[in-house]
Amino acid sequence: MSVIQSVTETLSLFLPLLLTSVVVAALLWLAHLLLIKRHKTEGNEKLFPKQLTMLILTVVGIIAIALSLPVSDSTRNQVIGLIGLVISGVFAFSSSTIFSNIMAGTMLRVTMPFRTGDFIQVSDFFGRVVERGLLDTEIQTENRELVSLPNTFLVNHPICVTRSSGCIVSTTLSLGYDVHNADVETLLLQAATNSELSDPFVQILELGNYAITYKVSGMLTDVKSLLTARSSLRRQVVDALHDAGVEIMSPSFMNQRKIADDGKVVPAQRATRGSTPETVAEDVVFDKAEEAAQREDSKDQLLVKIAACEETLKTVDNEHKGQIQNQLKMLQDQLKVVDQTISE
Rank of each mutant, 00 (worst) to 15 (best):
S164G: 07
T111I: 14
M54Q: 04
V284C: 10
L328D: 01
I259M: 02
A244E: 08
D283K: 04
V223M: 04
S164R: 07
I342L: 06
A182T: 13
L205G: 01
I120K: 09
S231D: 14
G127E: 08
T75V: 12
G127Q: 08
T58Y: 14
T272F: 15
T41V: 02
T162V: 15
A260D: 13
V24K: 05
D297W: 07
L154V: 02
D300A: 10
L33V: 10
S100P: 12
L17R: 04
F93L: 12
S72T: 01
L35I: 00
T279S: 04
S12C: 01
L57Q: 06
V285Q: 12
R128E: 13
H157Q: 08
L303R: 13
F119P: 07
F201R: 07
E185T: 15
G84S: 04
V7F: 15
V60M: 14
F119M: 10
V179H: 13
F201D: 08
S95R: 03
L220M: 11
A308Q: 09
D287A: 11
T193A: 14
A292T: 02
Q236P: 11
E45F: 12
I63D: 02
D73N: 06
V90C: 10
S72W: 00
N181I: 15
Y177F: 15
T315W: 14
V7Y: 15
L19D: 10
T58C: 14
S95A: 04
E196R: 12
L57K: 06
T213N: 09
L35V: 00
T53I: 05
S198N: 12
M219T: 05
L18R: 02
R132L: 11
R38D: 04
M330V: 04
M103I: 14
L67I: 04
A281L: 15
T213S: 08
S343M: 07
D118E: 04
P158A: 09
A281Y: 13
R230M: 06
T276K: 13
N101D: 14
Q140D: 09
T58G: 14
V24R: 04
I306K: 00
I56P: 06
L149W: 01
D287Y: 08
F286D: 02
L108K: 02
V59P: 02
M103Y: 15
V59R: 01
K299M: 15
V169Y: 03
I102C: 06
D136Q: 09
V169D: 01
D339G: 02
A240P: 14
I87G: 06
L85Q: 01
Q340V: 00
N181V: 15
A211T: 11
D199K: 05
Q325F: 00
I159S: 05
V86A: 07
T116R: 06
A271E: 12
I204M: 15
S148P: 00
G263L: 01
T276W: 11
A268P: 12
